[in-house]
Design a binder for these strands. Structure first.
Lengths: 205, 205
DNA sequence: GTCTATACACCGATAGAC
DNA sequence: GTCTATCGGTGTATAGAC
């Protein structure tokens, strides 16, 4: 029993150090982009030397992989909360889903690149890190099914249209809201295309 | 006169070498991604040593900048041809514009990343290299205006929706056509939203 | 587990001979 | 204009002392 408790404390300590490493890696990524994350600098930021990190991660890619997984887990937590009280109005529900995704993405360009774009040549997420991404998509499917959207192509149009707004925002106006302001119009356009009932979110002049 | 002719030949030679360098850089980028483009390897590919490249480009970034400019010039040439006989039917014209962009983008993932995404930390195109991109957007404005689309937001919806299809295609199904097949549906959705007349491109079952 | 020291490969860029 | 040689730096990763 004593031994058990001791092992648990050690495991907790190791997990804490791992989290500290990943957090430092995120800081560097935000400041200098994903390629700016180097083992040396991550170690320095938490008062370690580079070789010490290899006690906790087998390689730099393992650190990136942990960042990828954590980002999707963070988003999963966000939508778990949001999904609990989506508006009853279908268009408003779609707009809420869209705005939640948009804001999470726009909040952190580097995180979005890591999560959704193939920006790191050679990086492929591990099955473990990919799992929360799969769950996010499954939940989105559930939500859309609740609104009567069951067709795969129709779902693809939703995700790609939304992704397009995010991409343009991040690429061309990273600190503004030029494309965010279009969310309601785009949701109406999509809802009209589906024949979703209810008043439009956006009033054309 | 003789001196003039001699200078011209020298200038042509220099331009040819520059083009050769840029072409070799593209080959490397396609094979190994944009970060895989190194001055050494570009030089080796054309039978030179790395320092010799600095006779033709002041830095590696200058090479990337030339690649950026050339990519947009290439696309400009494509749409100059396509614009000459766009279909009379407005929806068909939109679909042609969309398919032209989509296919050019999907043809070369790395080129698309360089042209349209902020994937290289620290790279900002020079004014000269950016000029053809501006002209492409101006021509798109002309085309859309010809279809009665004059509002900036409405234009932004077109470009972002189209970009979204491309991004999803490249990120999730780079060799397939899962999102390309949605172009007609998406164009109809957009045209319906605008109140564009004419029969739909895509027949819902 | 963390450290120092270091290996090894690679990078962009420059100096100076030819 | 191209070369050889090299600088000063980067990177990931390992060996071995403590």
């Amino acid at each position: 029993m004593l031994a058990k408790a001791k092992r648990d404390r050690a495991a907790e300590q190791r997990a804490a150090v791992r989290a500290e490493i990943v957090e430092a890696a995120w800081e560097l990524a935000r400041e200098r982009g994903l390629p700016g994350v180097t083992v040396r600098d991550v170690a320095e930021r938490i008062g370690m030397r580079a070789p010490s990190l290899y006690t906790h991660f087998s390689s730099k890619m393992a650190i990136i992989d942990a960042m990828f997984g954590q980002a999707w887990i963070d988003y999963l937590e966000v939508i778990r909360v949001v999904d609990q009280d989506l508006p009853a109005h279908p268009r408003a529900a779609l707009a809420t889903v869209a705005r939640t995704f948009f804001d999470f993405a726009a909040e952190d360009l580097v995180r979005y690149q890591l999560m959704n774009q193939r920006t790191l040549p050679g990086f492929t997420p591990s099955a473990e890190s990919y799992a929360p991404a799969v769950e996010v998509l499954a939940r989105l499917d559930d939500t859309l099914r609740g609104l009567g959207i069951t067709d795969g192509e129709t779902r693809d149009i939703f995700t790609s249209t939304l992704g397009g707004l995010v991409d343009q925002q991040l690429a061309n106006d990273p600190t503004g809201d030029r494309w965010r302001r279009l969310i309601d119009r785009v949701i109406d356009m999509y809802a009209d295309h589906l024949g979703l009932q209810g008043p439009p979110l956006w009033e054309q002049s």
